[in-house]
Amino acid sequence: MSTHNPADGTDLPSTTPAPLGPLRPPGPSDSARQRTDAEFSAFYRTNIRPLTGFLIVHGAQVQVAADIAQDVMTDAYRNWTGITHPKAWVHKAASRALVRKVASVEEAVDDIPEPSSLLPRPDAIAEWETRHDALPMLRSLPMKQRQVMAWTLAGFTPTDIAEHLGLPAENVRANLRKARRTAAAHLKSREEDQ
């Protein structure tokens, strides 16, 4: 093997092995990776709390909602370059994850929640739920109405919701109307009690 010396135009015998190249696996360039990381970081900061709230409105306990939201965001990061509508993607994935969680029975009843950045004081869950007094009303709604209301509160239109849930748009609108009527009745009875 020889190495060409461009300074003098001659070929010199090689005494050292050829360089191996980068030790990183092939993939996007550093600048593309930094751009992707910056895009995802901005998306994460903007959407992690609303996504957790979306799950709470669906009926999840605060700690379960925080865990699911974090897991979904981790999956979103792994698939970031292939996701075209990230907000819809994470909401749909979170909704499905919650359904799987509710359907599974492997969760122990006496689990003690661990602190996280979304829930720094797990003992403050009851206090937080009390401050958000709409939660009992939302949790009293039938599942489909609660689901449609959660998507609506997350900023999706009935047409978007119908597309993401695979339901006719008329059904989404009907459930939304019923949920709003229930919410209005709840607020009216609360005002009368005061």
Rank of each mutant, 00 (worst) to 15 (best):
H132M: 15
L55P: 04
I161P: 07
A42V: 11
S41G: 11
P115E: 03
D37T: 03
S189G: 09
I56L: 02
L153K: 12
Q63M: 07
L119R: 00
R180V: 04
D193C: 09
D123F: 01
V62A: 11
S29W: 04
T10S: 15
T36P: 00
D30F: 06
E106Q: 05
P122M: 07
G82Q: 11
A88G: 08
A93P: 00
S29H: 07
A183H: 12
A42M: 04
L167E: 15
R181A: 09
Q70T: 15
M137V: 14
T16E: 15
A97D: 11
Y77T: 00
R190L: 10
P28Y: 08
R173P: 05
P19I: 07
P158Q: 12
T10R: 12
E192W: 06
K92C: 10
P86H: 10
A65E: 04
A184R: 14
S41W: 03
T52E: 13
E191T: 08
E39K: 08
I125M: 09
T182G: 09
A162C: 07
R35S: 08
P13I: 04
E192K: 10
R190E: 13
K144R: 14
K87S: 04
A7H: 10
P22Q: 11
E107C: 00
A124M: 08
G166C: 09
E191D: 15
Q145S: 13
A179S: 09
D111N: 07
T3Q: 11
R121W: 09
L119I: 09
V148Q: 03
A93D: 05
T36D: 13
E192A: 15
D193V: 12
P26G: 00
A185Q: 13
T130R: 15
V72Q: 01
T84E: 09
P17Y: 06
R35V: 00
T81E: 15
R173S: 12
I125Y: 05
A65V: 04
A185C: 02
I48L: 12
R177I: 03
S116V: 02
G82E: 10
Q147E: 15
A154K: 00
K92Y: 12
